[in-house]
Nucleic acid binder design. Structure first.
Lengths: 324, 324
DNA sequence: TTGTACGCGTTATCAA
DNA sequence: TTGATAACGCGTACAA
């Protein structure tokens, strides 16, 4: 910046004004500075600019579980869309459901002085970050954070699971099984609660053996569904509690050469390709990202309202797989 | 940091040494500093640390087309895996195939003093960045950059397209159509070149009317394939040049109630769910990300070898859809 | 409208 | 092994 000032024959401060878009500069000097910047290939250092108290870094931290999961990558897309309009960049990382990894990432992002954080808390969130003074605003998304008193954007997991399960029951299923990931994950616990609630409401007994949890990937889900269908008390309906479980179920159906009615939670690419097409209760991943980013922007702008809990409705899409 | 030094009764510099993991500190002072840091909830400011010349920011910029596309999110996953081991964070953004947006993002990342860049160049890359002095190392991925003299990691698009097309021909197809995105995208041009080359090698004439380009999303690809199949000269084989085209073709088949042999470029989730399962020429997206990140790390470490062009082989996966 | 002097949080030099 | 002091690149208060 000194070099630019020297080349343009002005003071350092005038250059600073120029790059910050100040209007009270003589047009002539403005031009000289512009020229000097071009000649010297000057580019300002935003890291240096941001160390000054009260100045923002223009960066928001994002911690999700796994960018490879379509649900989360869609979520990030929603966040991107909102923040890019404010000229904010995303410093993102995947925690892989690992609490200590998550804490490390948080530290790392905080050390970089992000203006705010959008976080999908891992199943066992080591530290609870919210509340500590001096922290930038945090918005939790997809799952509630470790603190009750925090902004959070979630889908209606319970209601969606009730709808999905009821849809199967309405179509004649009497023994509806559940496939999903670990119940330590808040969304999973909620979805199973909805599943059980719907069964109870229909006067159906919950069978613990028909609840397949801790299936973390497609292959594990496929194996679980396969052995369930080949077992003694095969169900006549299947609620798949996330996109990987749904895909696994389809693989199982194909491997066995036989299917049962199913409904999945969270839409997925293969849903419309399967035969019959898979009915789902979909959550608006992009919308969740958008809402979270909007709420964060409000907080960054100084909004001090009490913490908001934003629950996005789910949507039922019937495509055929819910019927026998 | 001054506060910590004061509280621990040492000088500022000793605290600096402590947080930087220097070993030449008296254990007693080390403990006092550690305690003071805890008491004061001190967290160092990496932005401030990085403004000093020669110091890295510990951040790498990533510009891709669209984080919502499974191919790119898988690519980013590969990058993440390599860089996290070096304690490096990703500052990522989507250019949406927009050249001017891309340039803006580049400027923004450069102003944040990233240590390096991994870039998927948009179809019309406005400026050519490589070569300008003072720039951090750049590795192009998925497509060659605007400069020939730059590190780049790509898949064997030409070879893969030849294999895909030949597979259809081998299975009896005589009028093989092509569906894909804009030929301004380097990978698309290469794949069409491979497609044509395979046709020529088989003694088959290339029919311009059977080349459906500029189909940017699934719906557009589906519409194109539908009208092609319902048209006067319906093909008896279909090469889908990217994952969105493949998915579009499946939708078209389902809408019409009739299919033709097809092979897709790039594997996708629904491929194993379709009936018959879709044969693909797959590229190792995660591997491409990994290789690009590794190459970037070498450059950041000061490796000054001539620019590398890394071409990753594609792999044919026959699942049934290539047959009539 | 422009410039001077200082401070932001950190690291590097060099002397103690 | 430790500490005083000067950068790093920039923004702000205040004076001119």
């Amino acid at each position: 910046m000194v070099d630019v000032a020297l080349a343009a024959g002005v003071s350092l401060k005038t250059v600073s004004r120029h790059v910050n878009g100040a209007t009270n500069i003589a047009p002539e000097l403005d031009d000289r500075i512009r020229q000097a910047i071009r000649d010297l290939r000057y580019r300002r250092n935003l890291s240096a600019a941001s160390i000054r108290p009260g100045r923002r870094s223009g960066v928001v931290g994002v911690i999700i579980e796994d960018i490879g999961n379509p649900f989360y990558s869609t979520l990030v897309r929603g966040i991107e869309g909102v923040l890019e309009q404010a000229g904010i960049l995303l410093l993102s990382a995947s925690s892989e459901e690992d609490g200590s990894r998550h804490d490390l990432l948080m530290e790392s992002l905080l050390e970089r002085r992000v203006d705010g954080l959008i976080v999908v808390p891992p199943r066992r969130c080591g530290t609870s970050w919210s509340g500590t003074p001096g922290l930038p605003p945090i918005v939790y998304v997809d799952r509630p954070g470790p603190m009750v008193e925090a902004d959070v954007v979630v889908a209606d997991d319970f209601g969606g699971a009730v709808e999905a399960t009821s849809l199967l029951v309405t179509n004649g299923a009497r023994r509806v099984a559940f496939v999903g990931d670990s119940l330590e994950i808040a969304t999973m616990a909620e979805r199973r609660r909805g599943y059980r609630s719907a069964l109870a409401a229909a006067g159906l007994a919950a069978d613990p053996d028909a609840e397949l949890t801790d299936r973390h990937d497609v292959a594990a889900a496929a194996r679980a569904v396969t052995s369930l269908l080949l077992g003694p008390a095969a169900p006549d309906g299947l609620f798949c509690a996330n996109n990987r479980s749904s895909l696994g179920a389809l693989h199982a159906f194909r491997a066995i050469g036989r299917r049962i009615p199913m409904v999945g939670f969270d839409d997925f690419e293969a849903a419309t390709v399967a035969q019959p097409a898979v009915s789902v209760v979909s959550q608006d991943a992009q919308g969740m990202g958008r809402r979270a980013a909007e709420q964060l922007m409000r907080r960054i702008s100084g909004d001090a309202q009490p913490p908001q809990r934003i629950v996005l409705p789910t949507q039922v899409t019937q495509r055929g797989s819910e019927r026998p």
